[in-house]
Design a binder for these strands. Structure first.
Length: 679
RNA sequence: GGGCUCGUGGCGCAGUUGGUUUAGCGCGCCUGCCUGUCACGCAGGAGGUCGCGGGUUCAAGUCCCGUCGGGCCCGCCA
């Protein structure tokens, strides 16, 4: 194969346009393009190449009559070769004359409604030209030239009013315009080609809607990222970060970097640790979030801070969780909860509208935590559809179904949801759903179908008609639906039915994918009781403030203290989490006491922080929107890896570089680390 | 730590109750022909031993055990 890539004179790499830029108005102008070969179509005499860069595709034509040398060179071109071409932009050829028609049909072109008679002329030429119902007519030159696009058949026709024999008539040409491409009305006739580089045949095609295993895409991520969809995602992520940066700047926030190497705080998630060379046996930790530093910045008088911060949590991944991720970290002084919510709402509006083109209505609804759990089974509800959970504990207390009554007697609950159209579910469907809820520890899934003839189920006999009618009324079940019941401890009921609701919402297509339902979850408890360890734990983190009304309960009934924490939820994803912080030393001490953290522990773990707190800390509050999840939502992706350029696999490996890697003994020795690696 | 699931030419898949063929198909790839295609077309061709290891059997891609890798989920994590 020809490998001649260079001339003696080096090519000019400065492009005049990107491949997605050119339009009909550019016809006649010279153009120089750089790009990758998406496809080459060799017709023996003339060669077409679809040249791709991050903006789009332009068809370039190698015609021996224009430049014999370029045409000869193009013979060796293959997929993903890197080309530099120059030539002239030209309107695409009107193509071959198909037939001529009476001038009277011209009137029909104005409104795009072609008569049956006109349509028949197309079919008369050849069956394959039969027009579909979906056609569009564009006027190219008023009164004389039109472009007729058959959208469904992806075919174009040029129609020209010109002299046909003695009188004026219409000439219909089979056009060469490609309605699929933004640049489809033009092409570049090449007079000079430089093959800047060759390429091995890629392992999968560089185009959207490919059906390729994810690990192969990840191993060849540099090829995967060339796909238009991925370029779109990268660009959107950039726009989101830019919109955020601009907005925060306009709101008076300073962007400040905080350390990546910091100290380990064993609270919450596992830290990613980095050994210290100077101090054998000591480790830095990568930030789970810049929480303490941003609070210290408030103590430092920064007043308003933000950062596009990389965060690290050494926990197992999920489709919406990575080992490292990016947050728009925000903190503001002299601020109350409402101030943070307002700034955040403005930020969301700005990001979603500027980066995603998605209109956002503010302010957002606010839903108390307990209500969210009660109605949706979790604190990140997808409110794009109904099927809410409903409590039937009171109704079922007197039924004859012992599974329910025993659960209720031991302090459990009976709740239900109604699935629209679920009366059609087969035994197998229901078995699958039972297995589904079992993963959330539910011991069973009771069901009752609602039909026009009444209730139908193996367990109907255990209930009175009134009880079932009450269940139907509360769940809102209609004839044709099915009611699902779970009886268990409240946590299990919430998990099982909450996830079943989501599962069925997707399966039954109840979700409007075009909607973005933003929603604040508020009124969280400050502490959570840990049954096993017989002590309180912070519901969020140690520095979350309490509401003024519930603050006195800190000493008497900590479980009832309400925090000033807030989460922002959109379509079932938590996208921001924040709170008003404790800024008073004595209140912070009380929190430590509730949590049984000894003064010694406080001193060793947060000594610097507590000390800073005592030196005039302003009231402050903050929040941290997750960039990855926002981009994920805007791109309608269900997997966070799709919106990260180089994500880790589920096992925490980098598929491209194979990190983490084994290091040399010399490196380990310098760090005084002895590896005990059996597994 | 656990459950489920997938692993056959470069990619996507098919391989029936273990025995039919030299393990098929589509795409891609290679060669040749073709001046208007845009999923170009036509003709021809190359390429896999079925993730890996072991076992059962006269016989295994097909059954069993183990192991490695990918994904989803529980735990964990906000």
């Amino acid at each position: 194969m020809s490998q001649e890539t260079q001339e003696a004179t080096s090519p000019c790499l400065k492009r005049t346009h990107y491949c997605g830029d050119l339009r009909l108005t550019d016809a006649g102008t010279p153009a120089q393009l750089n790009g990758w070969v998406k496809r080459r179509r060799d017709h023996g005499g003339v060669i077409f190449v679809d040249l791709r860069d991050r903006t789009g595709i332009t068809q370039v034509v190698f015609d021996p009559q224009i430049d014999e040398k370029a045409h000869a060179l193009a013979d060796a071109v293959r997929g993903e070769f890197v080309l530099n071409i120059s030539g002239t932009v030209r309107e695409r050829d009107p193509g071959e004359l198909l037939f001529q028609a009476d001038a009277a049909y011209q009137a029909e072109l104005a409104d795009g409604n072609l008569s049956a008679a006109f349509r028949a002329l197309f079919s008369d030429v050849d069956r394959k030209y039969t027009l579909s119902e979906e056609i569009e007519v564009a006027t190219r030159v008023a009164g004389t030239r039109w472009l007729l696009t058959d959208v469904e058949n992806n075919r174009t026709y040029h129609i020209v009013s010109e002299d046909v024999g003695a009188e004026n008539g219409l000439s219909i040409y089979q056009g060469t315009v490609n309605p699929e491409l933004d640049t489809g009305e033009i092409e570049v006739a090449v007079d000079s080609l430089n093959i800047l580089n060759t390429a091995k045949t890629p392992p999968f095609p560089i185009e959207d809607d490919i059906d390729v295993a994810e690990d192969i895409r990840m191993r060849y991520r540099f090829i995967d990222l060339r796909r238009p969809e991925m370029q779109k995602t990268l660009a959107m992520r950039h726009k989101a970060a830019l919109a955020a940066r601009n907005y925060m700047n306009e709101q008076g926030f300073l962007e400040i970097e905080t350390p990546i190497l910091m100290n380990s705080t064993p609270e919450g998630a596992r830290d990613v640790l980095v050994p210290s060379r100077h101090y054998p046996g000591r480790f830095y930790a990568l930030p789970q979030s810049p929480q303490q530093f941003k609070q210290i910045l408030m103590m430092s008088g920064v007043d308003r801070y933000f950062q596009i911060a990389r965060c690290f949590r050494d926990e197992d991944t999920r489709s919406d969780r990575q080992l490292e991720f990016t947050q728009l970290d925000i903190e503001m002084s002299f601020a109350e909860a409402d101030d943070v919510l307002e700034v955040t709402e403005g930020l969301m509006k700005r990001i979603f509208e500027e980066a995603g083109g998605i209109p956002v209505q503010t302010p957002f609804l606010r839903l108390p935590y307990h209500e969210s759990i009660a109605r949706f089974g979790n604190d990140k509800p997808d409110t794009r559809f109904g099927m809410e959970l409903t409590d039937l504990s009171d109704v079922m207390a007197n039924c004859d179904f012992q599974v329910f009554t025993r659960t209720l007697e031991s302090g459990g609950q009976v709740k239900a949801i109604a699935a629209p159209g679920g009366a059609d579910f087969s035994r197998k469907d229901i078995d699958d759903l039972t297995a589904f809820v079992a993963t959330y520890r539910a011991k069973g899934l009771a069901w009752v179908k609602v039909t026009t003839d009444g209730f139908s189920s193996g367990i109907v006999k255990f209930f009175t008609t009134e009880q079932l009618e009450m269940a139907q009324e509360r769940t809102g079940a209609q004839p044709g639906d099915i009611m699902f019941f779970v009886a268990d401890k409240p946590k299990v009921v919430a998990d099982a039915l909450g996830n079943l609701r989501l599962h069925l919402g997707k399966k039954l297509n109840l979700i409007d994918e075009t909607r973005y339902n933003f929603l604040w979850i508020v009124d969280y408890p400050l502490f959570e009781w840990n049954e096993e360890e017989n002590r309180y734990e912070p519901f969020h983190h140690l520095f979350t403030g309490a509401t003024e009304e519930t603050l006195p309960l800190l000493k008497t009934d900590p479980g009832k203290v309400q925090s000033q924490h807030y989460d922002l939820v959109c379509n079932g994803y938590e996208i921001c989490s924040g709170s008003v912080r404790i800024h008073q030393w004595d209140i912070q001490q009380q929190v430590f006491e509730v949590l049984d953290i000894t003064p010694e522990e406080v001193e060793s773990r947060f000594g610097y922080f507590i000390e800073a707190l005592a030196y005039g800390t302003p009231p402050h509050a903050g929040i941290a929107p997750g960039l990855d999840r926002m981009v994920m939502l805007m791109r309608n992706e269900e997997n966070i890896r799709e919106v990260i350029a180089f994500p880790k696999s589920q096992q925490g490996l980098c598929p491209l570089t194979h990190a983490p890697s084994v290091v040399t003994d010399a490196q380990l020795e310098e760090l005084s680390i002895h590896v005990d690696a059996d597994d």
